[in-house]
Design a protein around this nucleic acid. Structure first.
Lengths: 132, 132
DNA sequence: CTGAATCCGGTTCGATACTG
DNA sequence: CAGTATCGAACCGGATTCAG
């Protein structure tokens, strides 16, 4: 049933899961694909990615740096400069993420239509419908 | 139809985001890759996927069905039988997800090593650092 | 068997204020 | 400029219970 050599992702304690979650988290994907084009500084990333808070950006960058996907370079000027760029590992990964994002982008309208159809088949919508 | 080459994923209200979050969620990936092999019934999925609760399984399946990625078939026997299988759309998507999972699986030990190296460079755990 | 509804603890998130 | 500290709000996920 299962191909030998592939780790069992289905085990609850599979070590792949937390890493997978890191990479596919809401903000990590945006950070990684942004860095795919060129290195960015902290404030450049914050400006580029709509709606991210400083806390979440710092947290996401720390996780990605810890995972060895992003390299953090500090230039001790005044004021200080910090640059983030993809490592070789990150450069290897990001196209896979980008492919996924591209797929979703291309099928967004189809999926939205499916959602609308699904919602329309519900006779009495839950509390949301009454409430305006 | 969206522009596949340059989706503005960076806008805070980009419609791609919630869909992307749906399919990359912790359980959705496991459900989709499981269904990739063959259709499953509810209890079969629950048995196959380690650590998932009924609530999360039902919730995940409902979201994926609503997105048009999974087809839900009810056989009105007693007791009732419900079968889930990938739609054409889901069949198209899942390989991308599987590729990502495969990538992570293959690089898990590398990433774990990077994490260990990163953690080793932290002299004092921040949480217990001296207060002023 | 399938899955909806409820409760509830833990985690996450965002806004703000502050430091080097 | 590049973060960290703190705090309340929001969300998530698990266990339980109940219904079709």
């Amino acid at each position: 049933m299962e191909r030998a050599g592939s780790p069992d992702l289905y085990a609850a304690d599979c070590p792949v899961r937390p890493i997978y979650d890191d990479i596919t988290s809401r903000w990590a994907t945006l950070v990684l694909t942004t860095l795919m084009t060129r290195p960015h500084r902290f404030s450049q990333l914050a400006a580029r990615i709509g709606g991210i808070s400083e806390k979440m950006l710092a947290q996401t960058l720390r996780a990605l740096t810890r995972d060895g996907l992003v390299n953090r370079t500090v230039v001790p000027t005044v004021p200080i400069q910090v640059t983030y760029e993809l490592t070789a590992l990150g450069t290897d990964l990001t196209p896979h993420l980008a492919a996924l994002v591209t797929w979703v982008s291309r099928h967004t309208s189809t999926i939205q239509a499916a959602q609308a159809g699904y919602d329309a088949d519900i006779p009495i919508p839950p509390a949301v419908a009454n409430r305006r």
